[in-house]
Design a binder for these strands. Structure first.
Length: 572
RNA sequence: GCACCGAUGGUCUAGUGGUAUGACUUUGGCCUUCCAAGCCAAUAGCCCGGGUUCAAUUCCCGAUCGGUGCACCA
């Protein structure tokens, strides 16, 4: 039974959007190749993302290695936490998660137990699949990270990154200086990440190598109001908060302002990126009726995150697919890297007014203390500095011996102190996008079939901004100079920086269909009138309507159409 | 990873123990003045490895990939 997925993937393979990798050697599950149109579509989606995050938010893009040294992932928790403790039943060969079996038998803290302990505990427990006991089968780690070694001699362990985020965290100090030591600031990264999924399925939805676009926004822990919140304050986004999920209710359709003031969304930053993501997904061609946001339930949310929302896109095959995660990760990541590396990962925040005060300082008279206490003099002086002297002198304790130091052996000086500010570890707001899933969703939502006089017309209704080919140039006939005129127009369109395809093969209707199928939004047709009055027809993919316009103006009109400055209806 | 099912030109498919049907697409030619028209021709295929056999695309076993369920994951 061919569902929408089969149809979309068949078209995607046939027309060069996406196909299985290295097919001549039999492909590998979880890896795909983007073909000529797919790579272009992906690039354009990424560029829309750049428009949102770099151009408009002002967060610069960085690019870090995909292979990271082990310490990074020890700090991030991936070496330990991104692994599952697995056990295989010796009788039925079924694989199970060791901690799940413990939980089922009421054994507490199974997650913190060692492999040996778990092996021992599970020895006499029944396999959930076949009810035989595990008989001492060893529990082992299955880590979802791809491991490698760096350099000859296998001296350093490296991992292919499971997310791009860690590169931004580890560059925190450099980025902080780049942004001139002020909060808030953000950095973004678009790139490949890797997870050695046990069982990749669902085509492009679960890949072992996939593309992420992530932003890490560093904010003051007590200032989570987004400076441009007004931009999205009145935007209405379908939200399935914790309450709606528990009651099985419909998503709330409320403004972001209401969502924050009612406490459904934790703060303006999270709400702002929920709305921005909604805007982004629809700009790229997701169907607004098939996009919603779901709040993580307390038990699925990472313990450090205060709030987390997933953008879900409805797929005809896969149901609601998570495509974006927006989390307030607090200072978890920076704290972890600070601990692992010894660097501070803090920002110095000056107070509005320096805090002034007076401080008493005890200055020992070393000239007198030295001869008197000899070898102990240093210890006495240190203890004295930390003591609170009275009129009679200062009582200190050295090696359990209490000594009273008379006032003439030290001096009490008072001086003014000034604290100009404090070191603050920022909180991190993280919008994280799965580009491959978004790309698939856009293919699926864009796909349409219509019956035109008994023929099925397949169309990809891409927004012009993301369409891989932006215009087709078609001479009605391949003779009488129509082709030379068309080639000249083609040249002018390419000079405008647009991606165009020239096609003179077959009947005109067939050529329109070819372009419809790859989502080309506009087609320019050169006919015999072009020779008379230098006009061409401009055809709109979605309405199949045509207008005539001056051939000279075509590149400019196309540019404006693609940038969204004008719509095709404006030209009619 | 386990179980079940599947795999035939670029795509969809028929069929078979003696190398394969049809359609669409693509390419060239004819025709053609705006939405997959027609005619002629061409290109192109039995997933891979092993076994049984004189002979395997077909039967058997296994791998790979895909689908479904479990498990896993987000």
């Amino acid at each position: 039974m061919a569902d929408i997925y089969d149809k979309v993937i068949e078209l995607a393979r046939r027309r060069g959007f996406v196909w299985p990798t290295s097919e001549c050697y039999g492909s590998v599950a979880g890896f795909i190749d983007y073909g000529p149109l797919g790579a272009m579509l992906k690039r354009k989606i990424e560029n829309v993302w750049r428009d949102f995050y770099i151009a408009r938010e002002g967060y610069f893009e960085i690019e870090c290695p995909t292979i990271g040294e082990e310490s990074i992932y020890i700090a991030s928790g991936h070496v330990k936490g991104f692994a599952d403790k697995m056990i295989q039943c010796p009788h039925c060969n079924e694989f199970h998660r060791a901690d799940h079996i413990c939980d089922a038998h009421g054994i507490a803290n199974s997650e913190t137990k060692s492999l040996e302990e778990l092996t021992e505990i599970l020895k006499n427990l029944p396999c959930p699949a076949c009810s035989e006991t595990f008989d001492g089968s060893a529990v082992y780690y299955f880590n979802l990270m791809f491991q490698t070694t760096i350099g000859p001699g296998s001296q350093r362990t490296g991992y292919l990154r499971p997310e791009t985020a860690q590169g931004i965290f580890t560059d925190f100090g450099r980025l902080l200086r780049f942004y001139r030591d002020k909060l808030p600031f953000g950095a973004v990264q678009i790139g490949k990440s890797y997870r050695n999924e046990i069982s990749p399925r669902q085509g492009m939805i679960r890949l072992r190598e996939f593309t992420q676009a992530e932003a890490e926004i560093f904010v003051h822990p007590e200032k989570k109001d987004h400076p441009n919140f007004e931009r999205y304050a009145e935007r209405i986004v379908p939200l399935r908060g914790i309450k709606q999920q528990e009651c099985g209710g419909e998503p709330l359709e409320i403004t972001m302002r209401e969502a924050v003031s009612s406490g459904i969304v934790a703060n303006e930053y999270v709400a702002y990126y929920v709305a921005l993501t909604h805007d982004f997904l629809i700009t790229c061609g997701a169907d607004p009726k098939k996009v919603r946001f779901r709040q993580h339930l307390p038990d699925e949310r990472a313990h450090y995150a205060t709030d987390c929302w997933d953008a879900e896109i409805l797929s005809g095959r896969f149901g609601w697919v998570e495509t974006v995660g927006i989390a307030d990760r607090t200072d978890y990541d920076l704290k972890a890297h600070s601990k692992q590396s010894g660097d501070s990962f803090t920002v110095f925040i000056p107070y509005d007014e320096p805090k002034k005060g007076w401080e008493k300082r005890i200055v020992p008279d070393m000239g007198a203390l030295g001869p008197k206490y000899r070898g102990k003099a240093k210890a006495v002086a240190d203890a004295l500095s930390a003591s609170k002297p009275t009129d009679k002198g200062a009582e200190i304790e050295i090696d359990g011996e209490k000594i009273l130091i008379p006032p003439e052996l030290y001096e009490v000086r008072e001086h003014e102190t000034e604290i100009r500010g404090e070191d603050v570890m920022p909180h991190v707001i993280e919008p994280s996008y799965g580009i491959d899933r978004i790309l698939y969703s856009i293919l699926e939502h864009s796909y349409d079939e219509e019956d035109v006089e008994g023929e099925i017309r397949r169309v990809l209704h891409f927004p012009p901004r993301v369409a891989p080919v932006q215009a087709a140039v078609l001479p009605l006939m391949g003779r009488d100079d129509l082709d030379t005129i068309a080639l000249k127009i083609m040249d002018e369109i390419q000079n405008e920086g647009l991606i165009a395809q020239y096609d003179d093969s077959g009947a005109i209707g067939r050529r329109y269909r070819r372009q419809d199928e790859i989502g080309t939004p506009f087609a320019i047709t050169v006919d015999y009138d072009t020779k008379e009055d230098k006009t061409v027809t401009l055809r709109d993919r979605d309405s199949m309507k045509q207008i005539r316009c001056d051939a000279d103006k075509v590149p400019g009109i196309l540019r404006d159409l693609i940038r969204g400055r004008i719509s095709f209806e404006d030209l009619e």
